[in-house]
Measured scan of single mutants.
Amino acid sequence: HRQALGERLYPRVQAMQPAFASKITGMLLELSPAQLLLLLASEDSLRARVDEAMELII
């Protein structure tokens, strides 16, 4: 289940942060499945989480 969510998330994360897409997707997969579904449904929520992840990385 998580694998399938990751496969759906990755291209969207890659479009926002290509250099760190794998790392960010891995970080996002730590969230609950319900939270992941919310990110897939909301571009704004996904962008906010990706921005948060980038702050942790750099």
Rank of each mutant, 00 (worst) to 15 (best):
H1D: 15
H1T: 14
H1Y: 04
H1C: 09
R2F: 05
R2E: 13
R2T: 10
Q3E: 12
Q3M: 06
A4W: 15
A4P: 09
A4I: 14
L5S: 03
L5Y: 08
L5A: 04
E7R: 15
E7A: 14
E7M: 09
R8C: 06
R8N: 07
R8A: 11
L9P: 01
Y10F: 12
Y10L: 09
Y10Q: 04
P11V: 15
R12K: 13
R12Q: 10
R12P: 03
R12Y: 11
V13Q: 01
V13T: 01
V13N: 01
V13W: 02
V13D: 01
Q14N: 09
Q14P: 01
A15W: 04
A15C: 06
A15S: 07
A15T: 07
A15R: 10
A15P: 04
M16K: 02
M16E: 03
Q17C: 12
P18C: 06
P18D: 04
P18S: 06
A19G: 11
A19P: 03
A21S: 04
S22R: 11
S22G: 10
S22L: 14
K23V: 11
K23F: 11
K23A: 14
I24R: 00
T25A: 04
T25N: 03
G26E: 15
G26K: 14
G26C: 10
M27G: 01
M27L: 07
M27S: 02
L28N: 00
L28I: 05
L29C: 03
L29F: 04
E30T: 12
E30P: 02
L31R: 04
L31V: 03
L31D: 05
S32D: 14
S32Q: 10
P33C: 14
P33G: 08
P33K: 09
P33Q: 14
A34R: 07
A34Y: 14
Q35P: 02
Q35H: 07
L36C: 04
L36G: 01
L36Q: 04
L36K: 01
L36N: 01
L37N: 07
L37Y: 13
L37Q: 06
L38P: 04
L38I: 10
L39G: 01
L40C: 03
L40F: 08
L40R: 01
L40H: 02
A41R: 13
A41Y: 07
A41D: 08
A41F: 07
S42D: 10
S42P: 01
S42E: 08
E43C: 06
E43M: 09
E43L: 06
D44S: 13
S45N: 10
L46F: 08
L46Q: 00
L46K: 00
L46G: 00
R47A: 06
A48P: 02
A48D: 07
A48S: 09
R49D: 02
R49S: 09
V50C: 02
D51R: 10
D51Y: 15
E52S: 07
E52P: 00
A53R: 02
M54N: 02
M54P: 00
E55Q: 14
E55I: 10
E55S: 13
L56V: 11
I58V: 09
I58W: 13
